[in-house]
């Protein structure tokens, strides 16, 4: 059992939790992920490490409430426990040796983009962070990005926060202004990563994306998370989650991410009804 030592709602649908897991906290690196089960008989879900505290032995996760398991997780409070917490899994993001990097974060993907931004910044790299949300009330980690980047560009779909538009528009503008990046890191919805890659491909800028595939064990055993990269099948859990974005077959990845859409929606409704009954 792994204790929740801190819980904070970042916006109506996104929650931060700091979990006591000293062995994982001692090893975790930006870009790696954990697998958790909320309770016995629960589903195993992967969540990327948002932060870690080696001294206090905690790992921070940030999750969007999108389905049954995240709904149940969000109902846990400080002091309560989750049944399982496994990691750190996957390969860490390469953050060494870069001089100038643009980090593009979209929505809850910013939770993953943030530790990478912080690490690059700590390594003395010039980091331009472009973070986008649908609207102002969904913004997370604004001050954290502010502190960890050389330049922060805020973007929202509806114009209620920063510039109105898409992260790709903002990145295009940065490139047009003459910024030359060693690397672009894009983390967010698959569709966003796909279009960031299309843009950077034109300019020949190396682009790394973080693939958040459906997983079960997270150790290379099931192959559920497989995707096509450069024409070859890779497992996101052990070969990734970071991949060369110009090589990823995003259309396949998007189809695979929806494989259980109907069952997931049904399960979510079921859990919401149960939780409502519990409250009445």
């Amino acid at each position: 059992m792994y204790r929740i030592v801190r819980k904070k709602s970042l916006n109506p649908t996104v929650t931060l939790m700091e979990i006591e897991a000293p062995l994982i906290a001692a090893k975790a690196q930006p870009g790696q992920f954990i697998i958790l089960r909320v309770s016995e008989d629960g589903e195993r879900i992967p969540l990327t490490v948002a932060d870690y505290d080696r001294v206090n032995g905690t790992v921070t996760i940030i999750f969007q409430i999108v389905g049954a398991t995240t709904e149940l997780l969000n109902h846990k409070n400080e002091g309560e426990c989750v049944a399982d917490f496994v990691g750190p899994l996957g390969l860490a993001t390469h953050t060494e040796g870069y001089k100038k990097v643009a980090v593009i974060g979209g929505g809850v993907g910013c939770a993953i983009a943030y530790p990478v931004t912080k690490k690059l910044h700590e390594n003395g790299c010039e980091v331009h962070a472009v973070v986008g949300f649908r609207s102002k009330d969904l913004v997370i980690l604004e001050s954290e990005f502010e502190a960890a980047s050389t330049k922060l560009i805020r973007v929202s779909d509806d114009g209620t926060w920063g510039r109105k538009g898409l992260v790709t528009d903002a990145l295009q503008k940065l490139i047009d202004e003459g910024n030359k990046y060693d690397m672009v890191i894009a983390i967010g919805p698959l569709i966003m990563m796909k279009f960031v890659c299309r843009l950077t491909e034109k300019y020949g800028v190396k682009t790394i994306v973080s693939m958040n595939s459906i997983m079960i064990d997270g150790t290379g055993m099931c192959g559920c998370c497989r995707l096509t990269v450069g024409g070859k099948t890779k497992f996101a859990c052990v070969d990734g989650p970071d991949f060369d974005g110009h090589q990823v077959d995003f259309d396949e990845a998007m189809a695979r991410s929806r494989a259980y859409f109907t069952q997931e929606r049904k399960a979510h409704e079921h859990v919401c009804n149960l939780l409502k009954k519990g409250e009445n």
């Binding site: 589903e43 195993r44 079960i216 055993m221 099931c222 192959g223 069952q263 997931e264 399960a267």
Partner: peptide
């Protein structure tokens, strides 16, 4: 599916039971 994925979903995660959290 790989047989590993299919069997893991069914056996370890008990997808054969009504109301299993793993589909």
């Amino acid at each position: 599916y790989s047989a590993n994925e299919f069997l893991t979903r069914v056996n370890l995660m008990k997808a054969y039971l009504e109301g299993s959290s793993t589909p």
